[in-house]
Design a protein around this nucleic acid. Structure first.
Lengths: 187, 187
DNA sequence: TGTACATCAGTGAACGCGCGTTCACTGATGTAC
DNA sequence: TGTACATCAGTGAACGCGCGTTCACTGATGTAC
């Protein structure tokens, strides 16, 4: 049955939002279109009215996940970078794959992904870096940029590894060591 | 047809070695048992003579990939940590998913993986850290451990992100920034 | 060392199932008058 | 504002295909004598 244009646009948004979460939780290859559409309260056939292919959805959902993510970052880092780092490296964040940082959850999929996904990643990593950069100590802009990129790598690497080792002592140790090594300090 | 016990053991090893590479390239969900067996020069049916399930293979191939990896590290870091870091963060390493560092290539899969895979990861991350730790500057062992873990996170994060953004300027920039931020310095 | 036979590694067809994608159809929406 | 009809968002069956897994079978290997 047909639906208003506004409703159709809402449906599209819902597919994207759900995919952004489910791809983070299970990976591009870990969930099928049927489940993705069902999660959005629709049936399988309607998918191709909104997207060209599953690869197309992967690229758009990745963008959605990264953008939402970055907007959340922006607000929080403006308040206190050190407090934000602590929250970023918390147990809670480690345990919330689907709604946590999309850089961490999707980087592995992007590394094996299409050019479109990588392009989205490149654009967003740059934006994330700029957000961090503006909060870094020091005056030299090039140096702050460098610090921001290194910090991003440390944050992403430690959260990813701390997920990969399961809920062990090592999982906490990795994040604690990362936090202490950052220019913002151990808090 | 039956085959000598030695030959059967060789076959098993070949399956593991091939899986260790192919899982890194395409992910646990990105390649099927048929292709995995064919890569080892065998047919599909023989698989269950060697492994309990695909999950079982994922865990064992992950272990294989990480162990081989760590042994290579050990030899190279013993010579010059700084030179090794440079090689680790090289374009060549970025472009060689299948034979590159298994921590980077499989961390995302492990984060979504079974308890068995995570246990393997935990054991090996600890070993990697010990290898690095023994090469870190400073006297306090706890501090060296911490430095090693942070360095591991930075290395893994920067290589992963530099893969996820494709072959862009940002890809080099990420690795350069990571290298400069390490206690071993920019070289 | 040679023969007789049980073992079992590997084969390839088959199982049920879910995948990504296509398509004829439905019926409410949006438009023309 | 009301009627007539074209549009098109969403449905659900169907497509061919590959998935992980099972199994009856083959025939060389390994063993017992």
């Amino acid at each position: 049955m047909k639906v208003t244009r506004a409703q159709a646009e809402e449906n599209r948004e819902r597919i994207l939002d759900n995919a952004a979460q489910l791809f983070r939780e299970r990976g591009f290859d870990g969930i099928g279109l049927n489940d993705l559409m069902q999660a959005a309260g629709l049936t399988r056939g309607g998918f191709y009215g909104h997207f060209e292919s599953k690869d197309d959805l992967a690229a758009q959902a990745t963008q959605r996940a990264l953008q939402v993510n970055r907007e959340q970052w922006k607000v929080q880092t403006d308040r206190s970078l050190q407090g934000w780092v602590k929250a970023y490296l918390s147990d809670a964040h480690r345990d919330r794959l689907g709604v946590g940082c999309a850089l961490v959850a999707l980087a592995g999929d992007a590394a094996r992904g299409t050019a479109a996904v990588k392009a989205v990643f490149a654009e967003e990593v740059d934006s994330f870096a700029k957000t961090l950069q503006s909060q870094m100590p020091g005056v030299d802009e090039a140096a702050r940029r460098e610090q921001a990129l290194a910090m991003l790598s440390t944050l992403v690497g430690s959260l990813l590894l701390s997920r990969a080792v399961g809920d062990t002592g090592l999982s906490s140790e990795l994040r604690k060591a990362a936090r202490k090594s950052l220019p913002t300090g151990g808090g």
